[in-house]
Design a protein around this nucleic acid. Structure first.
Length: 340
DNA sequence: AAATGCGCCAACCGCAATGGA
DNA sequence: GTCCATTGCGGTTGGCGCATT
């Protein structure tokens, strides 16, 4: 098993292919086709085993191969297909013309896995990361006591050396609803050009939002893109469609996600008295069709969650100051606000 | 400039499936 | 039904090149 039988019969080359070897193989297959791979090396004048020739042809020499970096569309499709098919690389490759299973596998292992983790998603299950869920009990207890400051401190979700958080008195990004003072203030505190800190909070809080047994339903007052909690909660109510919906959202394929939702029954098992969660599906379509913002869908999805938790934790008459205090106590350097 | 670390990716390895004798 | 050659697939590895110390 393993090494092909022909490899034992004579001393065969291994390792990288030389340009001369490539030329011999390419010339032979172009003229005669590969036929039986085990006979190819001998007929093509190569000191390789048939298995090695086959691999070289499929992964490198085939004329229909697409070269270069993966496009955003390809990336989204791979994530979507991986959610549905798992590590069945050859099946995934059949949906991406010109790409090989090996190429997709390498791209997944070297790039996409990390990207998903940065978004707080387990690349194996396509659900929130276990490590974050393990922090859930602590965070949930703290949130229940409405003390956001303690949450951040006890979970260590802020990097004490991160100085990227810059608070300025301008209004927040467009995707923050401005109907409440609390949300204005959250936007105020998180309008940062390099939101390393806020991403960490987002990651944790969106996990909390998914699993929390908090009796307070968090229906979105954000329009038009629903927040991460609602996406995940929807996935919980329609498990058979969870992977498709989730990957569609994180691939920014709002139209597709919306269509999946509209085509399936919606029952909110967690909050049976709540409004029909389908109501925001149409909002997604509107967003897809009409919104040309340069903001990414991911930011639009998750950041409103922060606003809500800041709002829930705000008890003082000056929520701005409270958020600033939070940042200060997490040893994050804050600019543009007065001292406490 | 040299040493070291790290990420990427081409290629290999081991196993399962398939098909013919 | 069994054996064996071959093909196909997915996990793993080794080496190259770039970045950092």
């Amino acid at each position: 098993m393993g090494r092909h039988s022909c490899c034992y019969k004579q001393k065969l080359r291994k390792g990288l292919w030389s340009p001369e070897e490539d030329e011999k193989l390419l010339n032979y297959i172009t003229r005669h086709g590969h036929g039986c791979w085990s006979s190819v090396p001998k007929l093509a004048g190569l000191q390789r085993c048939g298995k090695s020739c086959r691999l070289r042809w499929i992964n490198y020499l085939r004329p229909d191969l697409k070269r270069g970096a993966f496009s955003q569309d390809e990336e989204s499709l791979i994530i979507e297909l991986h959610a549905a098919l798992g590590n069945r690389w050859s099946q995934i490759a059949t949906r991406l013309p010109g790409r090989t299973d090996n190429e997709i596998k390498n791209f997944w292992n070297s790039c996409l896995k990390k990207k998903l983790r940065r978004k707080g998603i387990d690349p194996t299950t396509h659900k929130p990361l276990i490590s974050e869920l393990q922090s859930l009990n602590v965070i949930d207890q703290k949130l229940t006591s409405s003390n956001t400051l303690e949450v951040v401190k006890s979970t260590g979700s802020m990097n004490p050396h991160d100085q990227s958080m810059v608070v300025s008195p301008q209004s927040g990004p467009w995707w923050f609803p401005t109907t409440t003072t609390a949300n204005q203030n959250a936007a105020f505190c998180l309008s940062t050009t390099t939101p390393t800190v806020s991403d960490q909070i987002v990651s944790l809080i969106s996990s909390v939002s998914t699993m929390s047994s908090s009796p307070t339903p968090m229906t979105s007052n954000f329009n038009p893109v629903p927040n991460n909690w609602e996406v995940l909660n929807y996935c919980n109510t329609v498990p058979s469609q969870a992977n498709s919906i989730y990957s569609a959202f994180f691939g920014n394929q709002y139209t597709e996600a919306s269509q999946i939702m509209n085509n399936n029954p919606v029952v909110d098992h967690h909050h049976p008295h709540n409004q029909d969660m389908k109501s925001w599906a149409s909002d997604i379509l509107q967003y897809t069709e009409h919104n040309q913002s340069s903001e990414t869908g991911l930011e639009a999805e998750v950041k409103p969650d922060i606003a809500k938790y800041y709002w829930r934790s705000s008890s003082s008459s000056s929520p701005n100051q409270e958020a600033a205090t939070l940042l200060h106590d997490a040893d994050v350097e804050v600019y543009g606000i007065s001292n406490r």
